[in-house]
């Protein structure tokens, strides 16, 4: 589903060159739920923005769903973001001037979907996150947990194959975080591929696989449940 080989990302400013990612290798299979951990500044967000085609990279290769993405133009990248990828951000990123319904509708409109189908999908995904009654509310009228669930509904409405989440629970208290996590687990069970960056070892432990990033490199991959606590603890310590 998502395969990066020898990928590098350099941020150049006038004074310095920062290698946010170097010789970065990862292979996420279709249907996996991967938790990405690592200390602050290690390159987790950078990895996610490149994976989500929000940014280009400097070297190496990235295949998304079998397509080498480095040659795609801006429009093609927008189309892939719109159709294949769902984003969930730490800061929710709902559009404050649009109500819940209109927020979820945004990506569907860019897809050119008919109004009836849009409405169906919006109501279905709101149902999914348990906020069907809040369709006419504005983001400012919702709690943080509710806002994040709307954001998840927005990501889900387009039935993406890949869900990318950058610290989706970072701004939520433990109870709300647990709710969001359960939602993600549901979505995963239904077949979506999920890559989630988190600082929370407890949440990371619930993923199928953990990837640890230090200094822009994947340091260890493990599917062995015995490693979970160890890596989670490491992530915790760095955070």
């Amino acid at each position: 589903m998502l395969k990066m080989t020898h990928l590098s990302k350099v941020y150049r400013t006038e004074v310095v060159e920062t290698y946010a990612l170097r010789d970065f290798n990862i292979d996420v299979k279709e249907g996996e739920f991967v938790a990405v951990t690592g200390p602050s500044g290690s390159g987790k967000t950078t990895f996610l923005t490149i994976a989500g085609l929000l940014e280009t990279f400097s070297g190496g290769e990235y295949h998304l769903d079998g397509i080498e993405v480095s040659n795609l133009n801006d429009n093609a990248r927008s189309k892939i973001r719109n159709e294949k990828i769902g984003f969930i951000f730490q800061a929710f990123n709902l559009i404050p001037d649009l109500n819940v319904f209109d927020n979820i509708e945004v990506p569907l409109r860019y897809r050119g979907m008919k109004a009836a189908e849009r409405k169906q999908r919006i109501m279905d995904s709101l149902e999914r996150v348990g906020l069907a009654s809040r369709a006419k509310h504005y983001p400012a009228e919702l709690s943080g947990g509710q806002q994040q669930r709307v954001a998840i509904a927005r990501a889900l409405a387009g039935s993406p194959r890949l869900l990318l989440a950058d610290e989706p629970t970072g701004n939520l208290d433990t109870q709300m975080a647990r709710g969001v996590m359960e939602l993600l687990e549901d979505i995963h069970r239904e077949g979506a591929t999920i890559v989630m960056v988190t600082h929370d070892p407890e949440l990371a432990a619930r993923a199928q696989r953990n990837v640890h990033i230090i200094d822009g490199q994947v340091v260890e991959l493990s599917e062995d449940p015995r490693f979970h606590t160890v890596h989670a603890a490491a992530g915790d310590a760095h955070a």
Partner: peptide, 16 residues
């Protein structure tokens, strides 16, 4: 600006 970035992330093209 941020909202525009979010729209772009959600699939808006520059033309949109």
């Amino acid at each position: 600006r941020r909202t525009i970035g979010v729209r772009r992330a959600l699939g808006a093209t520059r033309r949109n």
